[in-house]
């Protein structure tokens, strides 16, 4: 249990997707103009993350790892499909976002209207694919840890985008040198926020 909490805290603050790995930057910079829309996108990312990361983990453990196919027949014990992982992950993500979109549209039109435009965008958000790739690279031991990583990384991403949006809303009233206006100053602010996040380094539960 402690390990699971530790993974969550680490993935939100220390290994934050944005500030430590720069993952999911494109939509982070493009959508962070107002707090309201960035909360919408953040929730959608968490939502898709906690669905796709565990599914990809199960696929990796039971289909793609060397010798993972023994449950079908012993003759498959030399089969190693791990080179297919990119393809399988991205297919899962594209299929799941499509599915999630259809389910939300059917059962909760209100939520669909607020998330609507963001859901299809998420299929090409690097944060989602990176969630699965880091899951593979860090070799988490069980589904609980994987779920905690998925939730934590999504939450960390949302934290980052909402705080940047809050800063950008205030920024509108400031005089910024013309060439730096818009995207330039956003980069520098993200850098400064990253430095602030560095103070979390070394925290351990």
């Amino acid at each position: 249990m402690q390990e699971i909490i530790n993974i969550f805290i680490r993935s939100v603050f220390i290994d934050n997707m944005i500030f430590a790995f720069f993952i999911g930057m494109c939509s982070y910079l493009a959508v962070s103009k107002t707090v309201k829309t960035s909360i919408g996108l953040g929730v959608a990312v968490i939502f898709v993350q906690i669905i796709t990361v565990p599914i990809n983990y199960l696929l990796l453990e039971h289909v793609m790892k060397p010798g993972a196919l023994v449950w079908i027949s012993d003759s498959f014990k030399d089969v190693d499909l791990s080179f297919l992982s990119f393809m399988v992950y991205i297919a899962t993500i594209a299929a799941m976002t499509q599915l999630v979109e259809m389910i939300i549209e059917k059962f909760s039109p209100a939520l669909y209207n607020s998330l609507g435009i963001f859901l299809p965008l998420i299929a090409v958000n690097c944060a989602i694919l990176a969630g699965s790739l880091f899951m593979e690279q860090r070799e988490y031991k069980n589904i609980g840890e994987v779920l905690s990583w998925g939730l934590g990384s999504g939450f960390g991403w949302m934290l980052a985008i909402v705080s940047l949006a809050a800063v950008r809303e205030k920024l509108r009233y400031n005089k910024i040198p013309a060439p730096l206006r818009g995207i330039g100053i956003t980069f520098i602010i993200t850098g400064l926020m990253g430095i602030a996040f560095m103070s979390f380094l070394g925290i351990k539960v």
Partner: peptide, 28 residues
């Protein structure tokens, strides 16, 4: 070496590029 410096550097590159190419400057 810290990851955040990369962001600041790209910010500065954008700054330099846009001060040479005025048409790229964003309107408010």
């Amino acid at each position: 070496i810290m990851p955040t410096m990369a962001l600041v550097l790209v910010g500065v590159i954008i700054w330099i590029q846009r001060s040479f190419n005025k048409e790229l400057i964003e309107k408010d």
